[in-house]
Amino acid sequence: MKMKPKSILAFLALVLALLLAAGAVMSQEDVKSVNDPAFTSPTRPAPIFFHDAHNAKAGLDDCSVCHHVYEGGKKAEGASSEGQACSECHMKGKSTRPLIKAYHGMCRGCHEERKAGPVQCGECHSKRGPEALEGRGK
């Protein structure tokens, strides 16, 4: 059941229009960067990340690949954690270091494994922002 990116965009645009028209603000906008509010004073630009385009290109249908849930040190099969902030599990104290490590491990770890996608600092933490790179990952 693969959908063409164009139709995804069209669908999303429709949804967005409907929601805006209804005056309701929901969280389902197109994700363009990993702008985690847990980082109160980030030292690098937020990583560029076109959520849907990325998943389409990477062939990711299963949300729990990234939005995983761990129970007792084991990955809980079938369970996923969308809607939950990463920092809920990955940042116990005030230090953001575990959260950074989780993100880097998740993104770069997978890219290294698959030999695909950005791996160097500046490739994700781009100073040019998502707008400049819109469409790149598609």
């Binding site: 160097q120 600092c121 500046g122 490739e123 100073k127």
Partner: peptide, 14 residues
């Protein structure tokens, strides 16, 4: 070069 993401910074990084 790589930190400031000058053109070709991917090569500079390597």
């Amino acid at each position: 070069w790589s930190f400031h993401q000058f053109p070709g910074f991917r090569y500079a990084g390597i």
